[in-house]
Structure formats: structure tokens, C-alpha cells
Nucleic acid binder design. Structure first.
Lengths: 367, 367
DNA sequence: GTGAAAGCGCTAACAC
DNA sequence: GTGTTAGCGCTTTCAC
């Protein structure tokens, strides 16, 4: 009684059933006008009856386009990238394309293999968060005619489209905000990945300090050694930052490169009985979903993930249609400083013992 | 000087360059033994020289397998699903397959379109987190010969493989833990999605209460109305739970269906000057990355995301190889109660004014 | 060991 | 309008 799954129906099945040629059936299903209404109706009816689904493989082979885009991303567990995945998938699907997902986990080797997979699969283009350590393999992909859009991190050597976040500006604003609140001795705690996002945030920090006439001692920019535990490493940063900061001399304020660092710091400071922002003010980076609901709500930089994602796909689509050699377009989208209690507008001089402010922005916490 | 991207090299290019037949080249590149060593060397050299990459489309067409698996998932921004994506992608890639990603965002309509995409793309199989509201479209996919593995939520009507989490047990353990800590009036705060995971947690809660001889009044199981804001909706639950709980009469302890609910509650209780766990004990669900670093570290149920993901892919691979009609296998992986300060082992009777315990499990917070 | 022929399922070009 | 032919790039017979 168990029917083995019959082979998938093809155009020919419809054709023979109706006494037509494969070609006519093909045209009847495509919306060509060169088919009589009655034939078309019959074909469509038969197609529906036997559950015909066009074979994308075959179609792609002859058309020369797989109608598929690649997404090469480093770490889906990073909330920013998770949102990016969602927005990109949505946009790609809306355009009738499929999405091939490749995770590199910050490994150049994985990324090189990913580029081979992209070429083999003959994707029409790819959205890429590059590891940035090397890029020869990306050059090869681009030279083989697959348009690339770099996201969040650029590879300037390759003259591809790029859309990212103005990390420098976000960092500048966070730092300036802390200075405006009265901080003079500031510390920047950054990730230790060799990527431009980190570098840009450092630049923003330095610029804000300089603009305020404050010196930037060497030890005021620190990178937290982040071990990579395994290939699915979720952010270990709270712990890393917590540990790292234990040996630090604490300044007036700490600018962090991501919300997890801030989380670890908040914990450490609480244990030491220090008040935030009374004793030390803190800013995060990323506006993770929990940031607004911490006991000390976190002032942080909100990243426009959805906008970055959809812009990237749009750039890629334009590139696919244009096919010409327009100049590469680089877009930086401005992040937004979200001010909360960990670094308030005006810095109160009293210790701020009570922590009873209502949650801000109850209806504005959009993506 | 701008060379247009030359058409991708094919077997024929190599063949003509070397004065061989396409066939021989094909065999030389595949590891067939029916080629002389010298020919093989020449072919491989030429292939490398011109940067030949096999065309997966063509190969798939003749082989009848695209070497591609589908992943249909509801919401990448849910940390559990983010980890799931990573672990699944890793495993799929390790097996030499590609991964097609489809996001449904809990929408049946999206899911139905996703099934069409799966059939069109001729994936060899799919890992699916089903929306669960309807499943006729899944039946069609399965009947067309594409093996399915449901993940995290089951569709029992379809007799497919399934791997999930023993949500009932997790909930049972969290509830029992609170009861053992002295709680008598318990409240369960659940998501309002019509899915089995929620139902299972409710069952676990009730069972734990019954086993402890406690009654379960109707109003002790509550679902938090969670509005869906947009298609990229990150968890809005902290806010929703915060709002919802404002009008609640507070019990001894609250079991929540996810960590975001717990986060919202912690905030509300702090504002009211209530102590956790002194006045109200709380458990979360999910062990999100921030849970251990909250000011009141959260007792919560850790989900075995990586294990669920890799198991799902393994099941699918076996199914692909077997091709027989073995009985469907259902696997529930046991989650782990992680005990932290929000619901400590022994419930202290003093108000627990200090919150200075060092972060637990500094080296065990693996995925 | 190598080549010739056939075909995977589909679409584009050309006849009629 | 519809059918015939050809071919996308590759792999698998089956000769030689």
C-alpha cells in the first residue's frame, strides 16, 4: 500500500497526456501570448492536477541564471547579524530569488571554501560580511562575474558595492555624550578582531576626545582578548569583559564596543558596590534586545540592521540589472545613540541610589 | 582595458585546449580510475590554469540531486534559532551540501510559499521549524519525495522525523525547583503562540504543581498577548511581559516561558522595590547569553540548540541514504535547569539585600 | 584508456 | 498557434 514517491512530473508528462509538444506546454505555463486560450487552460488544468512544479535546475541551466543569491555571514548568533539575515532573506525572497546561506565563523579558511561554493552554485550575486583578513578569493569571485556587495565591513581593495554602519560616528557620539555628562577620564573597551568596525569605533573615540581637548593615553584604548571557544561561539564577551576589567583602574566612564562588554562591566561594578552612572558611566554598542531592560538600562548605539540589509540587497539587484561597470557605491548608514540610565543626559552628582525609572521608549523600540 | 567577465569555463574548454573529449575530461576530474595518469595531470593542470569550477546546476540536473538542503525557520532573531542556524549550516556544509534558507516569520502564508520554493529548487530534503497552524503544504512536499525533519515543533499528522526539546521536562524542573525553594503560589507566564512548545511547558508546570500537591487555579496560567510589530520582529517580550504583569497580583514565584519575559518582570519588580528572589522568585526559559550577567542572574532552562541542530541534519542524512520507508523517529533532547540567583537552591528567608555573588560557571557557559 | 552517443528538463530559435 | 530542432553543461552507457 506504500506508494513510493513517484518521480516528479515534467513538462513531458503534461505534453503526452494532452497530445501536445513539450514546447507548447512550456509556453502555456509561461505567460507567453503565443498559445490559444483553450490550450493554455487545458495545460494549466493538467499541471494543477498532477502537481507539476517547474524544475529550477533545468530552467536555470538554459537561462544561465539560478535566481539565487548567496549570503556569506560570520556569526548568526550576533543579534545584529541575526536581524541582517532576516531582512536580507525577506528582500531577496520578495524579488523572487532564493538565498544560499554560508556561515564563516570569522574563519578565512571557511570563507575561502564559501567562495568556491558560491561559484559552483552559480549564484547570481552575493551579500558578504567579509572576514577581512584576506580577499584574494573574493577577487576571484568578482572576476568570475558574480557581483558582490560587502556588508558591515568593506574590502576597499576590490571596488565592490558596500553598505555598512557609520561606526565611527556612533562611537563619536557615545564618547561625546559621556564627556558632556562630565566624564574626563574615559576608557574604550574594544573587541580584538582585526576588522574595520573596531578600528572605526576607536577612531571615533579618539576624535571625540580630541574635540573635547582631552588627551588619549595609550592605556585608554584597550582590546579585550576574546577567546574563540568553538565554532558556534555565542558572544562570550560578558565574561571576557568582566574578567579583563577586574585588573583595570576604573575611569569616569567606559565606552564599550558591544553591549555584551557593557553587561560584563555592569556586573563587575555592581559587585564592587559602585554606582552606574554615579561612579562610572557606561555605554554599549548594538542596542541588543535586553539593553533597555537591564536594571541599569543601557545607553547604547542602535544599529540600523534592517536598513543595512535591505539596502544591500537593493544594491545587488541594481548591479544585476545594470550589468554595466558603474562605479561601486559605498553607503554608510548612521546609527542612533539611545540614551538611557547608564549614561544619562545630565550627570547627577548624587549617588543615584534609587533605580526606579520607568522603562523608556515603550513604543519606539523598533528595529 | 575593462575586460568583461568572460563566460565561465566549461569542460569543453579544457577538452578542446587539450585535444581531448569532454567525456575524458569529466572522468579525469572526477576520481574515476579509467584515465591515464598523464592525461589526468594535464587536465587538472589546465583546469587549475583557467580556473575551472564545475557547474553544479548541470551536474545536479543529470544526477537528479542538487546536493542542497532547505532550512525553513520562523525567526532568526530568536537566539535559540540563531544557534540552530549555525549548527545546522555547519553540519550541512560538512556533508558537502548547500543550505537554502527560508524565513517564515510565523506566517502560514510565508510557509506555504516556502514549500513551493523547496519543491522548485528540488532540494534533497529540508529541516523545518513548522508554524504548526496548517500542514497540508508539508504533506505535499513529503509526498513529492522530499524528506522532512521537523525541529523544535512537531507535526505528528505527517509521520516525519522530528527532533526537539523536552520542554515539558524543563518546565517541570523549573517549577519543581521553585516549589522546593518554598514557593506555594506560582504563576506561569507563557507566550501566546499556538504552538506545542508552549503547550508542553504548560503541561510541565501543571504536572509539577500536581506532584507537589498544589492546586492550579485557572488564573495561574497566563499567556502574554504579544503583538507582532513587523516582519522582522525581534522579541518584544520584555516590554509585553512588563506591561502585562503590571496588573497582576504577584505570587511567590513566576515561571516564564522565555528569558525575555523574565527580563521584563525583573524590571517591574525592581521598580516596585521588590526583591528577587526574596519577594518573588523567577525562572526564565532559554538561557539567553545575557541571563548569567543580569544584576539578578537568572535561573533558567538552557536549550541544547547545537545538539538539536546537528541531530536534525543527521536524521535527514540517514533518511536520504536509506530511501526506504523506515518508521519516523522522534527525539526529544533534555534541556538543563541552570540555577542562579533569581531562584536559588535554598530560599533564604532574609530579604537578600546584597547582590554581590560572583558570576557562576565562568567556564561552563558553553552552547 | 578514450571517444561517441544519449539524455537530465527546460527554453529559444526557427519553421509551418 | 503549434511542432521541430538545438542546446545549456554535465555524466553515464557502450563501443573501440
Amino acid at each position: 500500500m506504500t506508494e513510493g514517491p513517484r518521480p516528479r512530473p515534467t513538462l513531458r508528462d503534461i505534453a503526452t497526456a494532452l497530445g501536445l509538444s513539450v514546447n507548447t506546454v512550456s509556453r502555456a505555463l509561461g505567460d507567453k501570448d503565443s498559445v490559444s486560450a483553450s490550450t493554455r487552460a487545458a495545460v494549466q488544468a493538467e499541471a494543477a492536477r498532477i502537481g507539476y512544479v517547474p524544475n529550477t535546475l533545468a530552467r536555470s541551466l538554459v537561462l544561465g541564471s539560478a535566481m539565487t543569491l548567496g549570503l556569506v555571514i560570520t556569526n548568526p548568533s550576533n543579534p545584529f547579524y541575526a536581524q541582517l539575515i532576516s531582512s536580507i532573506e525577506l528582500r531577496v525572497r520578495a524579488q523572487g530569488y532564493s538565498l544560499l546561506l554560508l556561515v564563516t565563523d570569522e574563519s578565512v579558511e571557511n570563507e575561502q571554501r564559501a567562495t568556491e561554493a558560491l561559484r559552483r552554485s552559480a549564484v547570481d550575486g552575493a551579500v558578504v560580511v567579509p572576514v577581512q583578513a584576506e580577499w584574494d578569493h573574493w577577487r576571484r569571485v568578482r572576476d568570475s562575474g558574480i557581483p558582490l556587495v560587502f556588508v558591515n565591513r568593506d574590502v576597499p581593495e576590490l571596488d565592490c558595492d558596500m553598505v555598512g554602519v557609520d561606526y565611527e560616528r556612533g562611537s563619536y557620539e557615545a564618547t561625546s555624550h559621556l564627556i558632556a555628562g562630565g566624564a574626563r577620564r574615559l576608557l574604550l573597551l574594544e573587541e580584538d578582531l582585526p576588522i574595520t568596525t573596531t578600528a572605526d569605533r576607536i577612531t571615533g573615540f579618539r576624535r571625540a576626545m580630541a574635540d573635547a581637548g582631552l588627551a588619549v593615553p595609550d592605556d585608554s584604548v584597550r582590546t579585550v582578548p576574546t577567546r574563540r571557544y568553538d565554532s558556534l561561539a555565542l558572544p562570550w564577551q560578558p565574561e571576557e569583559a568582566y574578567r579583563f576589567a577586574q585588573s583595570l583602574e576604573l575611569p569616569d566612564a567606559i565606552v564599550t564596543g558591544n553591549d555584551y562588554f557593557a553587561l560584563g562591566l555592569l556586573r563587575l561594578l555592581a559587585e564592587r558596590g559602585l554606582d552606574v552612572p554615579g561612579d562610572v558611566a557606561i555605554t554599549g554598542y548594538g542596542d541588543h534586545p535586553y539593553a533597555a531592560y537591564l536594571q541599569t538600562p543601557l545607553t547604547t548605539v542602535r544599529l540600523p540592521a534592517a536598513e543595512v540589509g535591505s539596502t544591500a540587497v537593493d544594491l545587488l539587484m541594481q548591479r544585476l540589472k545594470a550589468s554595466g561597470a558603474e562605479r561601486p557605491r559605498k553607503t554608510l548608514i548612521r546609527p542612533e545613540l539611545v540614551i538611557r540610565a547608564s549614561a544619562p543626559i545630565a550627570r547627577p552628582s548624587q549617588p543615584t541610589a534609587e533605580s526606579g525609572s520607568p522603562p523608556e521608549e515603550p513604543a519606539m523600540h523598533r528595529l
